[in-house]
């Protein structure tokens, strides 16, 4: 079965969701990610959804779950790159991803994580 790759970027993990995910793929990602957070003692997770053309309640819930589980494992989640059309649609759907931080792109997401972890945006890598 295919899996969505998880990349290590300095102290953070980066997941780039590129495919139109079916449900099992989404579930597998949740498991893999929690594994990796623990294994690498990561304190931040970036989920890049800039190529996603649709986010429905299922993906929304998955993102929420990842954020929730990460928090328990002492890692922060930042969702980056949501497209305007997707954002407008999610608001209409009624999904506001409470408790999930967001940023315009991966760079800004990293800055955000660094600032909140080290109080500075160019933390040592």
């Amino acid at each position: 079965m295919d899996r969505i790759p998880i990349l290590r970027m300095s102290e953070f993990l980066l997941v780039t969701i590129q495919v139109d995910m079916h449900d099992r793929l989404a579930m597998a990602l949740q498991e893999d990610l929690t594994d990796q957070i623990v294994r690498h003692r990561s304190h931040g997770v970036l989920i890049d959804i800039s190529t996603l053309e649709v986010v429905d309640s299922f993906i929304g819930r998955m993102i929420g779950n990842i954020a929730g589980m990460s928090r328990i494992l002492d890692a922060e989640t930042v969702v980056v790159g949501m497209r305007p059309a997707v954002a407008i649609t999610l608001v209409e759907l009624g999904l506001s991803l409470p408790g999930v931080r967001t940023a315009l792109d991966v760079d800004k997401g990293m800055q955000l994580l660094r600032t909140s972890l080290h109080g500075t945006s160019n933390g040592a890598s």
């Binding site: 790159g81 949501m82 305007p84 954002a87 999610l90 608001v91 506001s96 940023a103 800004k108 997401g109």
Partner: peptide
């Protein structure tokens, strides 16, 4: 208000 919410989802 929806625009404000959408902008937040995008990271602004």
């Amino acid at each position: 208000l929806k625009t404000v919410a959408a902008a937040r989802l995008m990271g602004a």
